[in-house]
Design a protein around this nucleic acid. Structure first.
Lengths: 115, 115
DNA sequence: TCCATATTTCCATGCTACTGGAAATATACG
DNA sequence: CGTATATTTCCAGTAGCATGGAAATATGGA
């Protein structure tokens, strides 16, 4: 991943409203949520939400699809993964005792199998 | 982790100069790098670097220690781990097939053992 | 003590992003 | 076709952040 792309994604997330939206969509998984539903849950103005969704979408962190009158938003997990990978690229300078717990956190916070 | 804390850390990273510094320190591992060495490698003005280091330190992403005339900066891997964990918290809505590759990326990009 | 190195602080300018109200667009339904 | 719902676009005022020059502080060595 390119540096500027990572910056634009981090910038998109570096905002209380947008980070809340993104985490909500991450938790919602593949089904996603309609814009109105997000606005209701987070209690934000629809125009503010729209702007924030636009920033997240432009950064490639979320996708949208129309469904009737609603527009459903979902997290883009592939791009999220790339971003996390970029942050830890070539990390630790050869100290696996630092790096291992870094990998462990995803297994813990995530619904990934307990393998 | 609190939302506002995560935002402040993401904000600190959402900047080309600071992200470059942070990744450099992540790669440097526990030994860290002196401010001057960072400035030399990234070719930035010392005052600009100082401001950026200050932002990263204030966000808890890096630590500093004096060593002679130099000040050595190191990444704060614990806080980095917390941030990554916050982003993926309760993720995927019960879809391990999405979450597993998310965890996998750390094993791949990182020096963690191939266990 | 004097000087060189290392890093930080101060400061002024310009730019970019956030906010919320109001209007506009798009879809669905009777 | 007219109305209700869902979402977006437009706009203007405000505030916070980045930048780079110059000076200040701190440590080490002669």
């Amino acid at each position: 991943m390119e540096l500027t792309l990572a910056v634009s994604r981090l910038s998109a997330l570096a905002h209380e409203g947008r980070l809340s939206v993104f985490r909500l969509l991450v938790q919602a998984g593949v089904l996603g949520l309609a814009a109105g539903e997000i606005a209701r849950r987070l209690e934000v103005l629809p125009n503010t939400l729209s702007a924030n969704l636009n920033v997240l979408a432009h950064a490639g962190l979320i996708r949208s699809r129309r469904q009737g009158r609603s527009i459903i938003y979902t997290a883009n997990f592939d791009h999220m993964r790339d971003l996390l990978g970029f942050l830890v690229e070539d990390c630790c300078g050869g100290s696996p005792e630092i790096c291992s717990p870094l990998a462990e956190v995803l297994r813990a916070a995530c619904c990934a199998p307990q393998a």
